Simulated assay, not measured.
Amino acid sequence: MSLFLALALLAGPAEDVQVAVLGHAVSKGDRLEAGDFTMEGRTVAAARGALGIEDAAGMEATRNLAPGTIVRRTDVMTPQLVRRGEPVTIKLASGTLLITASGRALTGGGKGDMVRVVTNSTSRTLDGMVDGSGVVRVSAP
């Protein structure tokens, strides 16, 4: 929550506060950018829980959002770098040894999230951590 919005909430419901709202429709899975927002006056009660532009920019929409929507924490999530059903590169690193294999994601996640993948060659299911876009790092068994 922005400092301005927090101060306005303390001031009481007498005035409208400026809050960030979407300037256009955003589809589920789209990444929000600072340019997607405009500032509008809303009542203090309506502005409760609103994310500031700096907090929402770079996040991914969890549902379709209409123009004029005040974005809240439940409307966005960390961007998904691995998506369920999509191909991934599975990396196993131990010291200077690096082994890679192709596979498929069984669950999705963002950077640092634990996901489950299956290797294409052996159909073995592994748990690993999202290391980047389409890359999952697993530990030696």
Rank of each mutant, 00 (worst) to 15 (best):
L3E: 09
F4K: 12
L5F: 09
L5N: 05
L5G: 01
L9C: 13
G12N: 04
P13K: 11
E15P: 14
D16C: 13
D16V: 14
V17N: 08
Q18F: 10
L22C: 12
S27N: 07
K28C: 07
G35E: 15
G35F: 00
F37K: 05
F37A: 09
M39H: 09
E40K: 14
E40I: 15
R42I: 15
A47P: 00
A47F: 02
R48D: 03
A50M: 14
E54L: 04
A57N: 01
N64A: 14
L65F: 11
P67S: 08
G68C: 08
V71K: 01
R73T: 10
D75F: 00
V76E: 00
P79N: 09
Q80C: 05
Q80E: 11
P87Q: 08
P87A: 04
P87K: 02
V88A: 04
T89W: 04
L92S: 06
G95V: 06
A101V: 05
S102N: 13
G103W: 01
L106I: 07
G108N: 06
G109C: 09
G110R: 05
G112Y: 04
D113H: 05
D113V: 13
R116Y: 10
R124F: 11
T125M: 08
G128H: 00
G128T: 02
D131G: 03
D131L: 08
D131V: 02
S133I: 05
V135I: 15
R137Y: 00
V138G: 00
